[in-house]
């Protein structure tokens, strides 16, 4: 592992990554990373509006992982902890991005991909009215839960949400998305 760390460092550095997290995501991790990034964004002299958007997108993404990741460590069969990755960095044009990845059940991927494509196709006004509609709607029993969160991220994004789903084996796939703030 020792030699690889320099490779990882150089790879992330070349992609202007400010934060990279890979591991189990609990609520405590969400809170810790959120606080850290609030301070970091201040030091990066991101404007107040940009900092708020990056912060909001980061929390929605990490809480999505906590709720939906199919990869969970169960050391004693009791504690169920979601596993995933999050990256915050800068695009070439200086904008911040927040990206996340985690394993999902392949069975859920069709619905997830349709939802992502639908959100990508909506205008700002449509996103706003969907958000207000969904906020009042009772959550469907078997919802992906992230319905409102995805729309919230899309509303805060400067560009359509970027995503990719890659099959790993018949049961699991890898879901990755990037939001440019």
């Amino acid at each position: 592992m020792t030699p690889e760390l320099l490779e990882y460092y150089e790879h992330l550095h070349s992609r202007k990554v400010i934060l990279f997290f890979s591991g189990p995501v609990s609520q405590g991790v969400v809170e810790g990373v959120a606080e850290l990034m609030r301070e970091k964004l201040r030091l990066e002299q991101a404007g107040a509006g940009v900092a708020q958007r990056v912060f909001a997108i980061l929390i929605e993404q990490m809480q999505n992982i906590a709720r939906h990741s199919a990869e969970r460590c169960t050391p004693d069969g009791e504690v169920v902890m979601a596993h995933g990755q999050v990256a915050v960095g800068r695009e070439d044009d200086g904008r911040f991005y927040v990206a996340c990845g985690n394993r999902v059940r392949t069975a859920d991927c069709g619905g997830l991909a349709r939802r992502m494509e639908e959100i990508r196709s909506l205008s700002g006004d449509d996103l706003a009215s969907q958000y207000r509609l969904l906020r009042r709607a009772e959550r469907p029993a078997k919802s992906l839960g992230a319905g409102l969160g995805l729309i919230d991220m899309a509303r805060k994004a400067a560009r359509p949400l970027d995503f990719r789903i890659t099959a790993l084996d018949p049961d699991t796939s890898f879901f990755a998305m990037k939001v440019v703030a």
Partner: peptide, 16 residues
């Protein structure tokens, strides 16, 4: 200061 999308739903319930 900040609230997530789930809280937004809860606040809507409160205001309703």
């Amino acid at each position: 200061r900040y609230f997530n999308s789930s809280s937004s739903r809860t606040f809507m319930n409160l205001f309703d």
